[in-house]
Design a protein around this nucleic acid. Structure first.
Length: 424
RNA sequence: GGAGAGGUGGCUGAGCGGUUGAAAGCACCAGUCUUGAAAACUGGCGAGGAUUCACGUCCUCCGUGGGUUCAAAUCCCACCCUCUCCGCCA
């Protein structure tokens, strides 16, 4: 959520900056509701003040044994008047609130302008796509030949967009998870967390998935209703919801491996082959909770943490700065890491690292006490995939495939594979 | 799932329906004292919001949501959560 005061006082500037990301702010509705809100709030609070002082007077009169009937007569109509004023105020505030919740974050000044992903900016590249002296296969064929990837079985069990991994490939996925967690905890200073995979609606509101993106989520039946997490960002970031942290606790660096569940509504026909786009996939997530003045530095660090994983796995990739039209709803700036996939002859997203500045923190009411003035201030939140495990598995298989269809296991994974060097 | 107890400020913990945003203690901050620290003493010390150039004034918040009342932390209802015991279970 954006700062309501910013919207109130700089409406046109806000609208202008949102235009850059393709969002048309309904300034007229906001102005109208805002002036209604102002009048109604002042009126309501006046009535409340009146009620309070008169009730107090009644209390005093009663205590001193005076006749309170005249005073009671005075307040006769007040209650109804107050109820009416409050009802219209609530109504206006709710409408204003809904409008505010639907406004995306402002892109940072450094975000390249652009309407869609074609205008994302390549920041840097690492590694050279391997030149195979044979026809490179994609992970689906590789996996099938190794008897390690069973997509038909998953259709029987669940439906499309699910996968069954068996034997060494299942183990390779586990190895990737362990390797990522170990790297982030040992080398990058993150605390490993285990978190719920089912969360309540408040948590999803806090990180911005609700109310706008309910269709992307799976939910449980019955009461209370739960949502399956679409990313560990949700439980990890919500750890600081409604908290006032000590300044010394910051920065908080948290990591967790979780499955992620996404309905992928609206992606029919996209990435239908293989593991790229699934309803259920594994991901290691990094989250940072930082002081506002350090969040841009933290974004660079966090992105580098994700890059480290790719580098150690010997996977060529490029870093893209998403343009204003392509960044997510809550983000002020996002770097996507795109890994080279020989099977597709393309770079594909494998990590997304974002600085949300105070956008999530405001919804979450996540604050820290600033020692400079002793006042609570909003923290800044960041997160990034470190990495999407399913896609990393795909990348390892495709980039490290050999002529005979075997997969070379990168050195850093071998300790997690009981010393095995090749899957064949 | 059943029975009971309980949810008050950063923490502990008081609080007959009326002058309680909330006693007291701890913690914290500032000052006095001290070479310095500690102790002692003095003072300060919740969050959010409206309005104002500002000083200030006002409103809301005692798990959450309703209700009763001129007036609710205090009474009533529902729900949530925590703890104890029983049952079931990995």
């Amino acid at each position: 959520m954006l700062d309501p005061k910013l919207i109130r006082n700089n409406l046109d500037q806000v609208a202008e900056r949102l235009k850059g990301r393709g969002f048309m702010l309904d300034t007229r509705s906001i102005e109208r509701l805002e002036s209604e809100r102002k009048a109604l709030q002042v009126r309501t609070e006046e009535l409340q003040a009146q009620r309070n002082s008169r009730s107090k007077a009644i209390g005093k009169a009663k205590a001193s044994g005076e006749d309170i009937q005249p005073l009671l007569d005075q307040v006769a109509g007040l209650g109804a008047e107050l109820d009416a004023a409050r009802a219209s105020l609530d109504d206006v505030q709710e409408r204003l609130g809904d409008l505010l919740l639907g406004i995306p974050n402002l892109p940072d000044e450094s975000v390249p302008p652009g309407g869609d992903e074609s205008q994302n900016l390549e920041v840097r590249r690492w590694g050279e796509p391997a030149a195979f002296d044979f026809e490179a296969s994609d992970h689906v064929d590789l996996g099938a030949a190794l008897n390690g990837l069973e997509l038909d079985a998953a259709v029987k069990l669940s439906g499309s967009r699910f996968a069954v991994l068996r034997g060494p490939l299942a183990r390779l996925q586990r190895a990737l998870i362990q390797f990522m967690l170990d790297t982030h905890t040992a080398d990058h200073g993150y605390e490993e967390c285990y978190v719920p995979y089912l969360v309540n609606a408040e948590s999803l509101r806090g990180t911005g998935q609700l109310p706008k993106f309910e269709a992307d989520l799976f939910a449980t039946r019955g009461e209370p209703g739960f949502y399956l997490i679409p990313t560990a960002e949700v439980p990890l970031t919500n750890l600081v919801r409604e908290q006032i942290l000590d300044a010394e606790q910051l920065p908080l660096r948290l990591t967790a491996h979780t499955p992620c569940f996404r309905s992928e509504a609206g992606s029919y026909g996209k990435d239908t082959r293989g593991l790229i786009r699934q309803h259920q996939f594994e991901k290691v997530e990094m989250v940072q909770i930082v002081r506002p003045e350090t969040s841009w530095e933290a974004l660079e660090e966090l992105t580098a943490h994700a890059e480290t994983i790719l580098q150690r796995l010997e996977l060529p990739y490029r870093v893209m700065a998403l343009c204003s039209g392509d960044i997510g709803f809550s983000a002020a700036k996002t770097y996507d890491l795109e890994v080279w996939l020989p099977g597709q002859q393309a770079y594909r997203e494998i990590s997304s690292c974002s600085n949300f500045v105070d956008f999530q923190a405001r919804r979450l009411q996540a604050r820290f006490r600033n020692p400079d003035n002793g006042k609570p201030e909003l923290v800044h939140t960041l997160n990034g995939s470190g990495l999407a495990v399913g896609r990393t598995l795909v990348a390892v298989m495709e980039n490290h495939q050999q002529r005979d269809g075997s997969i070379r296991i990168p050195k850093v994974l071998q300790p997690y594979m009981n010393g095995q060097t090749v899957i064949q």
